[in-house]
């Protein structure tokens, strides 16, 4: 590995740590404001009649193939449908017995989160939260890992599973190209009932609360998407509890980047601390081994010395004893000789 790529890697890692806390477009000194001037759509489900005009318009704008059953066939509303790679929006019907407000129709499509989980998840940055409010996808960099499908709390992105070599992630674009041309999203333009209102998100939230205030009997006192997962650019009004019309009621208000920022911020710490810690342990182990080896060598030397000393001592004792013995023997021999001489001289004199 060259030093440049290592440096790049370090740069990425450091950036990854901070970028997780500061999403794209954030000012370095403050909180990401989620583009307050961005656009959104208010879907008032109490006004929707399930005519599927929005579905037809979406199909046309995005050049999708015609579905099996035509868009004026209302029998498709009898089953709960999902969006897929050939259909960015569906309207589902929710019926409840003995309820004057029943049936309720509810349109599904991408909610265009202020801080999108798909963008947080994507490791090639294929998703962008545009200042216009739309969350758009760039197929030219997509690897096809489908982490965005996993991450999305609304099950919005879909994937071209039948595409062998160039599969794309498919989801509603809020008609971003049309917005840039000054046109309305296809579905909003097609809605004959005014169930879809396009406008600045901030204004739409005010409108929604205004409607609740004016008609407390008509609406549940909750604007879905105002706070969910940090806020979405599509927001909803309903006359019956949201979980009864296919909404996840307990998503919480934490935006996606906050869920992973803690873990990501640990990366530089691990890279910084682990090598020093492990290196230190390695050095200590080496030292311990060296000391152990030295101590062993010294112990051996001491033992050898001690043995040597004992041997020397014994040798000395032995030689001394031998010397003494020798002296004794000489003395004895001299004495014997003297005795003998004395005896002999005694004999001669007598």
């Amino acid at each position: 590995m060259s030093s440049t790529s290592r440096r790049n890697f370090m740069k990425w890692i450091t950036v990854a740590g901070t970028a997780a806390i500061l999403p794209k477009g954030a000012k370095a000194h403050g909180q990401f404001d989620g583009y307050p001037n961005s656009y959104g759509v208010l879907h008032d489900t109490t006004l929707c009649i399930g005519c599927r005009s929005c579905e037809a318009a979406c199909n046309e704008v995005n050049d999708f193939p015609q579905p099996e059953k035509p868009f004026d066939d209302k029998s498709v509303l009898d089953e709960k449908r999902q969006t897929n790679d050939k259909c960015y929006t569906v309207v589902n019907k929710y019926e409840k017995d003995n309820n004057a407000k029943s049936p309720v129709f509810r349109k599904f499509q991408c909610n265009h989160c202020k801080e999108p989980a798909c963008a947080s998840a994507c490791f090639v940055g294929a998703f962008t939260k545009t200042p216009e409010g739309a969350v758009v996808y760039d197929a030219t960099v997509c690897v096809g890992c489908r982490y965005c499908l996993i991450a999305c709390p609304f099950y919005v992105p879909t994937y071209e599973y039948d595409e062998a070599l160039e599969p794309r992630v498919m989801k509603c674009t809020m008609c971003h190209p049309r917005l840039l041309d000054g046109k309305l999203p296809g579905c909003v333009e097609a809605c004959p009932q005014g169930a879809l209102t396009f406008g600045k998100r901030e204004d739409l939230i005010k409108t929604a609360h205004e409607r609740i205030r004016k008609h407390p009997d008509r609406y549940i006192d909750h604007v879905y998407g105002e706070k969910e997962v940090g806020g979405t650019n599509w927001i909803y009004l309903s006359g019956i509890p949201f979980e009864e019309i296919g909404f996840h009621a307990s998503l919480g208000t934490t935006p996606a980047p906050e869920l992973t920022s803690g873990a990501l911020s640990m990366v530089p710490i691990v890279i910084g601390v682990w090598p020093a810690l492990l290196g230190g342990i390695y050095v200590m182990t080496q030292r311990k081994e060296k000391i152990a080896a030295e101590e062993k060598a010294e112990a051996v030397k001491n033992a050898v010395d001690a043995t040597q000393a004992t041997a020397n001592e014994e040798m000395k004792k032995a030689s001394e004893k031998a010397k003494q013995n020798k002296e004794k023997a000489v003395e004895k021999a001299v004495k014997e000789a003297l005795d003998k001489a004395t005896k002999q001289s005694g004999k001669e004199s007598s």
Binding site: F9, W12, I13, V15, A16, A19, A20, P23, K24, A119, S120, A121, C122, F123, V124, G125, A126, V141, C142, V143, G144, C145, R146, Y147, Y159, E160, E163, L165, E166, P167, R168, P257, T260, A263, L264, V267
Partner: peptide
Amino acid sequence: VGRPWRLPYPFVVSPGVTSVMFEVGA
């Protein structure tokens, strides 16, 4: 993955550094 020949993309074409998966991949 859909387009395996693009697996180096996170590192050479378009790094998505906010992603935990970027860290895993690297």
